[in-house]
Structures are given as structure tokens and as C-alpha cells.
């Protein structure tokens, strides 16, 4: 029988207890066990960034962390981002700039952008592009995403 473990963690403000196979990765656990399908699976080797989410305040690839490693962690996925404040403003800016097309990269892109903005990042297009360089988007060409991040930093976007 595959080995399992009991884990308890906080996901989007809720305490969750579950028994998970030890080989189950975090993003599969969130998607398939908790139904939080906002985080996406794009490559399963940490390159595409679609599964990027927040673990204990730091962006993390959900495909490169096991669910069992998240025992005791506090996790925020795209579903748990607040409607107000920086996250709300960023969503508004993404909408205004059409910084998404198919939307598959968007949850990971938001997580990476929020980490940059939250750390006090400047509205420097090169720096923003470098910070987002681990998140693949095939649709937009990235420019509108950079625009949206700049809008939030420079106070043009409101939740």
C-alpha cells in the first residue's frame, strides 16, 4: 500500500486536515483533494510557473513541494486572494490592461507579481520582467502584464 500521512495546514484561512499519499504534490492536493483548481499544473518540473502559490508568505512552486511537506504551513492560493487592497488592485489592473488571455498562467502570474509589489518593487519594467521571468505566458507577450504591475505600483489601479 502507498504510504500516507496525516497533515494539518491552513489554506486560504481555513484549517484543513487530510490523509495524503506521501508522493502527492502540493498542487495536486489542493486541486484534486480540496477542489481549489485555481492553481494550475503546466509542466511539473518547476519551469512554467503556473502552479506558483504562496506558502508561509513566499511564492512556491506547487509542483515542487509535496503535500506532506506542507504540514503546518499557511497557504494562500488565487482563490484566497482578497478582493481589496493590493490583490484587488492587481486584478483590476490585469482586467484593464487585458493582461491575460487564456488565463491559465494568471494565478501563478498574480502570485509572482504580488510578491514583487509586496516587497516594495519599483515600477521598473526590466526589474518586473526579471521577477516574472519564471512564469510562462504564451498568449499575451508579457507587455500588458508588466503594464498592469506598473499600474499597481504607481497607484493607477484600484480594487
Amino acid at each position: 500500500m502507498p504510504e500516507t500521512r496525516d497533515i494539518t495546514l491552513t489554506v486560504n484561512g481555513e484549517t484543513v486536515t487530510a490523509t495524503v499519499p506521501v508522493r502527492l504534490n502540493l498542487v495536486d492536493f489542493l486541486r484534486n483533494s480540496l477542489g481549489l483548481t485555481g492553481s494550475h499544473v503546466g509542466c511539473e518540473h518547476g519551469v512554467c510557473g503556473a502552479c506558483t502559490l504562496d506558502v508561509d508568505g513566499a511564492t512556491t512552486r506547487g509542483c515542487l513541494m509535496l503535500a506532506v511537506q506542507a504540514d503546518g504551513c499557511t497557504i494562500t492560493t488565487v482563490e484566497g486572494l482578497p478582493a481589496h487592497g493590493m490583490a484587488g488592485a492587481l486584478r483590476a489592473a490585469f482586467t484593464e490592461r487585458n493582461a491575460l488571455q487564456c488565463g491559465f498562467c494568471t494565478p501563478g502570474m498574480l502570485a509572482s507579481a504580488l510578491e514583487y509589489i509586496g516587497a516594495g518593487g519599483a515600477a521598473d519594467r526590466t526589474a518586473i520582467r526579471e521577477h516574472l521571468s519564471g512564469n510562462y505566458c504564451r498568449c499575451t507577450g508579457y507587455q500588458s502584464i508588466v503594464d498592469a504591475v506598473c499600474d499597481v505600483i504607481e497607484g493607477r489601479a484600484r480594487a
Binding site: 483548481t37 490585469f94 491575460l100 488565463g103
Partner: peptide
């Protein structure tokens, strides 16, 4: 005009096959 779909996708409420 902004896309009506955008907000849904930005809230993680897309409906992709593997969801």
C-alpha cells in the same frame, strides 16, 4: 472594452478540463 471573462479567471474560477 474589458473582457467579461477576465474577472472569473483572475479569481481562479476558470473551468479547464483537468479542473
Amino acid at each position: 472594452v474589458p473582457r467579461a471573462d477576465a474577472q472569473r479567471l483572475l479569481m481562479g474560477r476558470g473551468r479547464f478540463v483537468d479542473d
